[in-house]
Computed example of a mutant assay.
Amino acid sequence: MGVTDFGGPEALRILELPDRHAGPGEVRIRASAATVNPADTHVRDGSQARWQRLSDPPYVPGMDVAGVIDEIGEGVETDLAIGDHVMAVVIPKASHGGYAEQIVVPAESVARVPAGVDDAAASTLPMNGLTARLALDLLGLAPGSTLAVTGAAGCFGGYAVQLAKVDGLRVVADASEADEELVRGFGADIVVRRGSDVAERIRAAVPGGVDAVADGSVQHAALLGAIRDGGALTALRPFEGDTERAITIHQVWVNSYLREQARLDGLRELVERDALTLRVARTIPVRRAAEAHRILERGGTRGRLVLTW
Score class of each variant (00 low, 15 high):
150 T>N: 09
150 T>L: 09
150 T>A: 10
151 G>V: 04
151 G>C: 05
151 G>S: 10
151 G>N: 12
151 G>H: 07
152 A>S: 12
152 A>M: 05
153 A>I: 03
153 A>Y: 01
153 A>M: 02
153 A>G: 15
153 A>V: 07
153 A>D: 12
153 A>N: 11
153 A>L: 00
154 G>P: 05
154 G>R: 03
154 G>Q: 06
154 G>D: 05
154 G>M: 02
154 G>V: 13
154 G>K: 01
155 C>V: 15
156 F>L: 15
156 F>Q: 11
156 F>A: 06
156 F>R: 09
157 G>N: 06
157 G>Y: 00
157 G>L: 09
158 G>C: 01
159 Y>P: 11
159 Y>I: 01
159 Y>V: 00
159 Y>K: 09
159 Y>W: 05
160 A>R: 00
160 A>V: 10
161 V>T: 09
161 V>F: 03
161 V>M: 01
162 Q>R: 05
162 Q>L: 09
162 Q>M: 15
162 Q>P: 10
162 Q>E: 15
162 Q>C: 10
163 L>K: 14
163 L>G: 12
163 L>H: 14
163 L>Y: 14
164 A>E: 04
164 A>Y: 00
164 A>T: 05
165 K>E: 09
165 K>M: 05
165 K>D: 11
165 K>N: 11
165 K>A: 09
165 K>F: 03
166 V>A: 12
166 V>C: 08
166 V>D: 02
167 D>Q: 13
167 D>E: 14
167 D>H: 14
168 G>Y: 03
168 G>Q: 06
168 G>L: 10
168 G>I: 08
168 G>K: 04
168 G>V: 06
168 G>N: 04
169 L>S: 00
169 L>A: 03
169 L>I: 11
169 L>M: 04
169 L>H: 04
170 R>K: 14
170 R>I: 14
170 R>P: 02
170 R>A: 14
171 V>E: 05
171 V>M: 03
171 V>Y: 01
172 V>Y: 06
172 V>G: 10
172 V>S: 06
172 V>L: 10
172 V>I: 15
173 A>V: 08
173 A>K: 04
173 A>I: 12
173 A>M: 11
173 A>L: 08
174 D>W: 05
175 A>S: 11
175 A>T: 01
175 A>N: 08
175 A>K: 11
175 A>M: 04
175 A>C: 09
176 S>F: 09
176 S>G: 15
176 S>N: 04
176 S>T: 15
177 E>G: 14
177 E>Y: 03
178 A>Y: 00
178 A>E: 12
178 A>D: 13
179 D>T: 15
179 D>A: 15
179 D>G: 13
179 D>V: 11
179 D>H: 12
179 D>F: 02
180 E>V: 00
180 E>F: 01
180 E>Q: 13
180 E>G: 00
181 E>W: 10
181 E>H: 12
181 E>S: 12
182 L>M: 13
182 L>T: 12
182 L>P: 00
182 L>V: 08
182 L>D: 08
182 L>G: 09
183 V>E: 03
183 V>L: 13
183 V>K: 04
183 V>Y: 07
183 V>D: 02
184 R>Y: 14
184 R>Q: 14
185 G>S: 15
185 G>F: 15
185 G>M: 15
186 F>N: 04
186 F>L: 00
186 F>G: 06
186 F>W: 13
186 F>A: 00
186 F>Q: 07
186 F>Y: 15
186 F>S: 02
187 G>D: 07
187 G>W: 03
188 A>S: 02
188 A>T: 06
188 A>K: 02
188 A>H: 08
188 A>C: 07
189 D>Y: 05
189 D>S: 06
